[in-house]
Every structure is written in structure tokens, then in C-alpha cells.
Amino acid sequence: MRRALPIFVVLAGLLIAIAVVNPYFLEPPAFLAFVKRAAPLVILAAGQYFVIVSGEFDLSVGSLVTAEVVIAARLIDGSAEATWPVLALLLVLGLLVGLVNGIVTTIFRVPSFITTLGMLLILSGAVFLWTGGAPRGALSPEFRELGRGSLGPVPWSVLILVAVVAAAVYAMRAGFGHTLIAAGDNDRAAALSGVRLARVRTAAFMISGLSAAVAAILLGGFAGVSAQAGNGLEFQAITAVVLGGVVLGGGRGSVVAAMAGAFTLEALFTLLNLYGISGALEPAVQGVIIIAAVALGAVRFPRRRTAAAS
């Protein structure tokens, strides 16, 4: 937990800085709106955490989000009855993509960076091949309710986020979490002590795929259909996880800190907007802060991955 502490300090600092400029920010409606906006990235970061802590990468989540949103729009095409079957289909698709990533990485021994890069190309190519270059159809109001509606005062996406946090924390405390961290820390030692590496890592990729599907459902509801729905999300999710003190290469870091990293990134975007550094210079400030945060954190990265990569 000591490793995770800095990110909570940074997050608290950012939230206070936002509250100074905008006093309403810490009141429930505004804060819930912030959490709602952050929910997709936080969920993606949670999924990415499982993959990273097991010693791999998942670069395919961004294009998976785009693919899911575009597929949902095309299949639902505004009809209410199609909503629930399509939702189920999206979750299955996410799991399936994760399964393929996992099998190719573990059984065929392709480095996960390349597996998921290939998956990125395949997904973005295939989905636009299918729709002819641009998104078609429309999401039904019922579908969009999940991303933008609310139950009483609490948005649905916040409730879903709470469920995801609970599930992620539970998974990491259970035996699965321990074997996952063992696999990421030293996969040879883990394998010799009876961890089935292929199975554990494949499960991690499937969790990442599932989280991308959930994030896509929320994003589709929140922001609507676009061909750019998931652009750059893979890098944002990885950045969030690393900001949370999780080590690239696996074996170190907590899932709560990874999600706090995603909140921090979102708070940073909000703050930059408030201070009017929107648009042009925003990426530059973001870049500086990411490098600085990672460098200043008490985090020591291994220079490179040793065991799993070769």
C-alpha cells in the first residue's frame, strides 16, 4: 500500500485545486457528474491493470471500444427490443477478444505488445469494413440510459463503477489475484510452484476485454456513436495504471491505485479545462505531468522485462 500512497495524495491535491476554482465541484451533483465522466476510463484502467500486473500489455482496448460502439449502433438501429440481446452480445464479444489475445500470447508465445497491436489493426479494420467506413444505425434510448441516465440522484454508470471496483478488489484478494501477481513477478517461479500461467494470463486478457465492453456501453450512452469513440483510450488506460504506481512488466501495484490513477488523469483534464489550458496545449501539459509523476513517485521501474518477453 505504501507504493500506492502518492497517487492518492496527488488525486486529493487535484480535487482540492478544482474545488478552489469551482466551489460547487465537491457538492454531490457536480461530483457525481465527474465520477460519471470518469467511469469508462476507470473501468478500462481496472481491466488493463489485470493484464499489466500479470506482465503483459493490452493495446487493443481502444479499438475494441470503438468496435463495440459501432457494432451496437448497427445492430440495435434504434429498436428497443434489440437492446438487451445486443448488450449481452457486446459483453460476449469483449470476452472473446480477450480470449483470443490470451491464447495467441500464451499458447503461441507472441509478445502481447504485438498480439494486441495486431488485434487493434484487425478490429478497427474489420468493423469499418463491415459498416463501409463510417458508423451506421443508432443506439436505442434504453441503451443510452446506462451511460447518461440515473437511478434517483445516482447515475447508472456510477453504480456500475462501484460494482466493478468491488469485483476487482475481490478478485485481487482471492487466490486468482495472488497467482496473477506471482505470474507477473516471476513467471518461472510461479510456473514451478504450480501456477497455470497460460490460464491465469488468458483470464487477465478476458477481464480486460470485458472491461472494454462495459466501458464501451457507458461511453456509447454518454457520448453517442462515433468512429473515434475509443481513440487513444489504450494509452490513457496504460498511463492511468502506471500513474497508480503499477510497474510495467508486472508483479507490483494495487488495482485500487490503478483506478485512482484513472481518476487522477480525469481530474487533470478537468483542471486543465477550468484553467483554460484547453485544446492546444493540453497534451503538452499532460505529457509533462505524466513523466514527472512517474519519475517523482517512489516507483522504480525495471529497465526492461527479463523473463516473459523472450
Partner: peptide, 10 residues
């Protein structure tokens, strides 16, 4: 093209 490239790469 993107699909084929992805498949070739992997």
C-alpha cells in the same frame, strides 16, 4: 488492408 496486416503481424 488493416485486417490482413494485423493477421500477418501476429
Amino acid at each position: 488492408k488493416d485486417v490482413v496486416r494485423g493477421v500477418v503481424l501476429v
